[in-house]
Write a protein that binds this DNA or RNA. Structure first.
Lengths: 345, 345
DNA sequence: TTGTCCATTGGAAACGTTACCGAAGTTTTG
DNA sequence: CAAAACTTCGGTAACGTTTCCAATGGACAA
């Protein structure tokens, strides 16, 4: 099978390689007739430029990477879909890479960047607990999307971030539950390492309780130290079983992710507890399925589409030096649905 | 920021570039002392080989591509996660690309292969209705995973395939429903183009009914021509509403994917129909969540892990010419759960 | 006419790596 | 002890692009 190169095309058209290159890349200094001739030869022979050669010659590849921790999470696949479309629009390719639970995101990023000479990085999920020094080593701009809080001692000028105010939104959910008459509110946190979203949402939970004069009861806080699949449904199921095993009474259960909540649903059901009659159940994220299951899940909906678009736009703006690093916070939406009810007086 | 190249490392160690190359690539013709010296310099200076240069020099990149139609489908993300791990094990990188609904998978593949000089392609989902001629143009081995039926007139030697026998498994589900006393069984098919999995599963449905002497009633078959998001929950919801609107009575509803079934669940609920008391509901795929929602969903579980592993293994075997193209069919598992019941006599 | 400028082009040097070839030194063989 | 074989290495030519620089020819101004 004959795979033409730029040289072949040049020979076929009786022009120099640089002219062909100009044609491909829409350079201005080229006669439109020549260009048309070249383009038609390219079509005819099915020539496709070799990406490796291009990227080698260019100082940097026309590509960015998306690093995700937990690709199975529907919340992230939603984001990824949008980000990919946005990249395509800009004729950039998107390298999608999965970070294992035990890998350090910045280390992985550094390796990928050097290997592929990428222009930028988007971190999805994951944790942000890196030293400023390490971050500085990352030579390309990067945007943290929905990645928990970032330690105060790290300069905000080093990175961008896109997220909702997890602590605040979480508090809003709990406040809603309190207003609905709940006082014994249990919480399911998959992990609550310092700086993680789990931690932020847990903090928000505590904030709300305190604001309403309700003591935070550690017996109602269920967190697993399991490092794998933090937000898996299985984890939600197992954690809830553990919580129920404590024999502590509660009228509402707030899971810090929808997937956890779905797992919890089953555990509650198996124990004979009905949602919402016996226990109000709430989640966080607002993934599609929460709207379809029965009962539909009360949750905090993050503006996925908007966040994903802005994440991409911001990254490209920074790459093009049109802007400096930014930190954008979005308004999430409290969706009250069937899984939670008011406690009757 | 200084980014060392192989030349820099060579200079630092006082050796030739080829020696450094030998060290990096575990070539045999190198003194272990020299190698150790080089490797430590590499670590010290944080040298990472440039992938583009490597791929340019090598005839083909150490990479494969996974082309997915519908990345939001949890069934596929499950497959992808496993495939990625398998690639990592073999020190190959995996290019993940999403095929838009209106794109031709083989065209996309061809472009990607030429651009990136990949060694192989995995198609996930999508449709297989391509001419043999077109397929032949694809110069690298490719494996179709869970991609419907393939027209008889295409030589089996041109590609590999990995799937369950969709028609057979689908029939098994419907047979189970019939044995449970259901005779009015409606079916939800997102799309049923020739050769699609939807079509196969619909065929299986018809097979089972006929085998039991039940007439296939077109009024119980609900298919959408909507080309976007075939298997989305929303589609399941809307289709079911449409089906219910017909006023046709049925005791069981079989959706050809779990996501469709979840959508159906809501539509049934809104109409006041209880699952499973009023309508038995069944899905297909066996994604995680079917086990956690209430009621848990009766479904056909495809052996995702095994299929994904075999898909990758097979592709690499073909690339290495250890084997020819193969066609593997897996046994799926009928999981009877809470969403379906026997019709009382 | 002569010189300047513009539009368009071709040549060639890089980009960072791998792989071939041959050289040098060392060990084994006859 | 010479020849042969084996180890270990360095030099260098590619791989397919892009980009700089110089060259050509024609148009236009002086």
């Amino acid at each position: 099978m004959f795979e033409p190169t730029i040289k072949d095309i040049a020979k076929i058209c009786g022009v120099g390689v640089s002219t062909v290159s100009r044609a491909i890349n829409d350079h201005p200094d080229i006669n439109s007739e020549t260009k048309e001739k070249i383009m038609s030869a390219i079509r005819e022979y099915g020539y496709v430029p070799n990406d490796s050669a291009r990227n080698l010659k260019r100082v940097d590849a026309k590509a960015i990477a998306v690093l995700v921790k937990g690709i199975a999470n529907p919340f992230f696949t939603g984001m990824i879909t949008v980000i990919e479309q946005e990249c395509k629009k800009r004729h950039y390719s998107m390298e999608l890479s999965h970070i294992e639970a035990d890998e350090d995101e910045v280390d992985v990023a550094q390796k990928v960047v050097k290997e592929k000479r990428l222009r930028g990085i988007i971190f999805l999920g994951g944790l942000f607990s890196h030293s400023e020094e390490k971050l500085k080593k990352l030579t390309v701009p990067f945007v943290f999307s929905t990645a928990g809080s970032i330690p105060e001692n790290i300069s905000r000028k080093l990175y961008s971030s896109i997220s909702v105010d997890d602590r605040r939104e979480s508090a809003r959910m709990v406040e809603y539950l309190i207003r609905s008459g709940h006082t014994r509110i249990a919480i399911l946190v998959a992990e609550a390492q310092e700086e993680s979203v789990g931690r932020l949402r847990l903090d928000g939970y505590c904030d709300a309780l305190k604001a309403h004069g309700i003591a935070v009861d550690p017996k109602l806080i269920c967190q697993t130290r399991d490092d794998r699949g933090h937000f898996s449904m299985e984890n939600g199921y197992l954690s809830t079983q553990k919580l129920l095993g404590r024999g502590e009474a509660f009228t509402a259960l707030y899971a810090v992710s929808d997937t956890l909540a779905i797992g919890a649903m089953r555990a509650l059901y198996e124990t004979g507890l009905r949602v919402p009659q016996d226990v109000s159940l709430a989640g966080y994220d607002g993934i599609d399925m929460t709207d379809y299951i029965v009962p539909s899940l009360t949750t905090i909906r993050q503006p996925v589409e908007e966040m994903a678009k802005d994440t991409t736009r911001l990254l490209f703006d920074i790459i093009a030096k049109r802007t400096k690093h930014q930190h954008i916070t979005y308004e999430a939406k409290l969706l009250v649905r069937e899984s939670t009810i008011k406690i009757p007086e």
